[in-house]
Amino acid sequence: MNALNSILTPIADILLAPFGRLPSQVALIFWSVVVGIAMAWVFKHTSNQQRLKEVASCIKAQLLAIKLFKDDLGVTFRCQRELMKATGFRLLHSMPPMLIMLIPIALILTHLAVRYEFRPIQPDESSVVELTLSSTHWEANKDLQLQVPPQVEIETPALRDHERHTVSWRIRPTAPSVTPLTWTIADQTVEKTLVVSDRPGLLHRVSPQRPGSNIFDRILYPTESGFTSDSPVQSISIQYPRNSSPIFGLDIPWWATFFIVSMLAAVATRPWLKVQF
């Protein structure tokens, strides 16, 4: 997963780079549209379009029959049964493209999440940094020191939690920067990127966690390489504030914006792509 992430992360950076100076919503809407069109194209080429067209015609016919024979209860019920059947078929024929698109969409979502789910810490805003050690390395390394660049202050002594094997600090950056926080453990230096910005409305890559060996964590937090299972460090997290990316004054979650815009884009391009959903 580390290898895949190390390929995908720079690609995502390149694709989003042109939007770096624009409000973050612009990139979200643009890429939602692109992904929507791409999904429609993939759908067209991975589904049985002929069968889907037949199902769509059948649905149309049943709806027309219901309208024409609305006084005949028998016909209405029969049409509704056929409608349900046709809807089931439509779902069934939509499954293969959906399964094909599942993994790419999930990867796109995780890369969007690190840019839209959280916002950077602002200068003079406090945050908690937490490092989790493996149980075998706890006793030997629990007194480890956090090293910070000059523009970051450490506000508390290390808090060692013997039960969860975590060490926590509260930090307060004083100036915007993208900078590593570092620790030295067993002659190794480990890092976690800290993102500080006084322009939180722009696009930033904000990963709240550098994951361990857990595959799901590596999918969810793809931008920093995960620690191996034998590493003394199991994960490092920074508490970033949740982001808010209002669209036209509505504070809807970024993922809802993504799905709504991509679906609208897919539906809008249907006549040109000649795709049947």
Binding site: V128, E155, P157, L159, R160, W169
Partner: peptide, 28 residues
């Protein structure tokens, strides 16, 4: 609330929020 065994610092965990406080401090 979790405290360090020696240092005068503790952590409050409430509804996915983690607050680290020195002794005598107020949270936001």
């Amino acid at each position: 609330v979790i405290r360090d065994p020696q240092a005068p610092v503790a952590k409050v965990i409430i509804q996915d929020q983690v607050i680290l406080l020195n002794e005598g401090e107020w949270s936001d």
